[in-house]
């Protein structure tokens, strides 16, 4: 056969591509269930029309509090609203005993990264969606995938395994910060963002 060599070579390439693009991500990430379901859309939708910062608050000193503590949920959900299972579990397992929900955070950065929400959101007036996407209108939580090597969430790299964001808000790695700062002529040293 004339092209026998090329065929085997191409077969190897194709096999590698298939593995690399489709099997590798499955092997690299481990999916972990969030402790309980959450529907952002119900909160931010027309009926309640809450804004992000009503729950994702800032502390007095400007620190971003991140995911609200269960006491914040209890402000409205001290007793079950509605009859869904999730609601029942929320009240019984967390709110009544006052136990914090062990959320897994999609955007959790390494300990040596410093990011100030106040600088970007309060002073810089950036909309939350610019980094977090339309998370606030989701009805279910996306699956939480842990990188088996680095231990960080898949969302830090971006959902797309290529590292090329399919949507502008995908990925939260350092180059994303650096590019955005460079676009705005912000010149910084390392300590500006590393703690």
């Amino acid at each position: 056969m004339k092209h026998r060599g090329i065929i085997f070579l191409l077969a190897g390439v194709l096999a590698a591509l298939a593995i690399g693009w489709f099997v590798f991500p499955l092997a690299l990430y481990r999916t972990e269930p969030q402790p309980i379901g959450f529907n952002h859309a119900v909160h931010t939708g027309e009926q309640n029309s809450m804004t992000c910062d009503m729950c994702h608050e800032f502390a007095e000193d400007g620190r971003f509090k991140g995911i609200p503590v269960v006491a914040k949920c209890a402000e409205c959900h001290s007793t079950a609203i509605g009859t869904t299972d999730v609601e029942k579990r929320l009240v019984e397992e967390y709110i009544t005993p006052g136990k914090e929900i062990p959320w897994m955070v999609y955007s959790r950065q390494p300990d040596n990264a410093y990011f100030s929400h106040a600088t970007h959101v309060t002073r810089g007036k950036m909309p939350c969606e610019e980094c977090h996407g339309p998370h606030g209108s989701s009805t279910t939580l996306p699956s939480f995938q842990v990188n088996r090597i680095s231990g960080y969430s898949r969302d830090v790299w971006g959902r797309d395994i290529s590292g090329i964001p399919s949507e502008p808000w995908q990925g939260m790695k350092m180059d994303r910060c650096v590019n955005c700062h460079a676009d705005r002529n912000k010149v910084d040293g390392c300590v500006a963002c590393h703690k």
Binding site: L9, A11, G12, V13, A15, A16, L17, I19, W157
Partner: peptide, 22 residues
Amino acid sequence: RFAGGGLIGTLFTPIPWKLLDD
């Protein structure tokens, strides 16, 4: 040849680069 192709192909997949990064 298959292995060589695999090797070349791997370079065009995220495997080496992502592993390096992680």
